[in-house]
Write a protein that binds this DNA or RNA. Structure first.
Lengths: 243, 243
DNA sequence: CCAAAAGTGTTAGGGTTACACCCATGT
DNA sequence: ACATGGGTGTAACCCTAACACTTTTGG
């Protein structure tokens, strides 16, 4: 356990990440259950080292949890209300985990607790990952790390639910202008998978032929060989995102 | 002079504002020349009180400098590289202003200097104001506060020039989607003024009739009486932005 | 040969762009 | 009456949405 202090980290500034994944027509978000009694769920979060940039820090936090670097990651919003603290949550943690805190096995020092319960400004980042490439890695703060359907999230701590909602809104607005959707798909895919993904994200349906035209007109996909699935129909082409 | 400390302000976190104004076919940005020898120019900046939200803080900073509340103000980007400090600038200030710092009249305490020269993460906000409503107000840090044409800015300190460039880019991208352009105009205006403003911001020209259609199709303007200018042509209508 | 699903072509409609015309104003 | 600039109408164009048809695959 490394301790928190302003020598090491920038105080009162945190990063929270909404990590999106996609599998079988479900848009998923990575959520950690923290390693204390009390059923507390949190987005992957972290602090910024004094010697690193904020984008670097976000990439590091993601690398720690998912094992992949060179991830698509972007800042989307800050969360900085006046009364934004962890105090209530830590009160709950301490109440429900007296045996830990009263034992010899000290986890947090008093200074750590003061640090963690101070008022925080949080930088909201969102990431798009190929869910198959991810190796979920728990930190010592995590009891579990799991993908949840974005509409079936557990109760998240603080304003993390709002963070997810705002991130989804931001994603929907920017998916078309910037071409980032393919970050959610594996290396190769068929057109129907792209359409399913779009329909999942926007919760709408699109006509098959026009969708294909629209995507191919982006001119960012290269067509590979056909994919024979064994189904009794014409084999669809595989595509790959150019670079 | 109030002193800087982490009791009062959030440390290592600043707000920098790109305040846009418009007058006579020129897009302008508010820049302060700070009150020391050395020709140092800066965007209006400030820190966040422990008891206030970040958006609140941005509004307060703007109110201090421009005198107007209920301004259009939005966060657009963070600036948080690893080595982002004021150190070089303060070195220059101290060198060029030895008489101040060696005099009895102590302006900054050692603690203040440490605070000001630490590594900072900056939250970039941009504002759109009706330049006629602004009463420029210097703080004790400002030698002057002036509007500069966005393409004729003085040498700005740190990464403030990049901030302006990024803010302009952001403005161009969002002017049409959100309807915010009228924040730059006075209460009432004629269509030609709107068109001039657009042409100034985007550095393009538009056809008069189609521009009028496009703007009126937004259905956000109400037509008022005609404006008789004394010119020997048909008097244009005045418009007002609906709420 | 047939069902299923992929690929592609064709037409209709809506919105934007370019051009034209008319109107008010003061000299 | 006329020059000037503002307001509006119309037709061409482009892009997208809706529909139709063809092709491939395995049973």
């Amino acid at each position: 356990m490394n301790h928190f202090n302003s020598q090491t980290y920038i105080p009162q500034l945190a990063i929270d990440c909404v990590i999106f994944g996609y599998k079988e027509k479900e848009l998923k978000v990575l959520v950690s259950k923290i390693h204390f009694k009390g059923d507390i769920y949190s987005l992957p979060s972290g602090f910024i080292f004094q010697h690193e940039g904020v984008d670097e820090a976000a990439h590091r936090i993601l690398k720690e949890r998912t094992g992949i670097a060179n991830i698509f990651l972007e800042h989307y919003q800050n969360f900085g209300q006046a009364n934004r603290t962890n105090k209530a949550i830590f009160q709950k943690i301490i109440e429900k985990n007296r045996e830990f805190f009263e034992s010899e096995k000290i986890i947090f020092t008093q200074a750590d607790l003061e640090w963690l319960t101070s008022r925080f400004v949080s930088l909201g980042y969102y990431a798009l990952v190929d869910i198959n490439k991810v190796t979920l890695t728990k930190t010592e703060m995590d009891e579990s790390m799991e993908w949840y359907n974005i509409h079936e999230l557990p109760n998240l701590m603080m304003d993390h639910e709002e963070m997810v909602k705002k991130a989804l809104k931001y994603l929907r607005l920017h998916l078309d202008t910037n071409i980032i959707v393919f970050n959610l798909l594996p290396e190769t895919f068929i057109m129907k998978e792209v359409q399913d993904l779009y329909e999942t994200i926007y919760e709408e349906t699109y006509s098959r032929n026009n969708f294909q035209k629209k995507i191919l007109d982006l001119k960012v996909l290269e067509r590979l060989e056909k994919k024979f699935t064994g189904a009794q129909n014409k084999a669809p082409y595989l595509y790959r995102f150019k670079r």
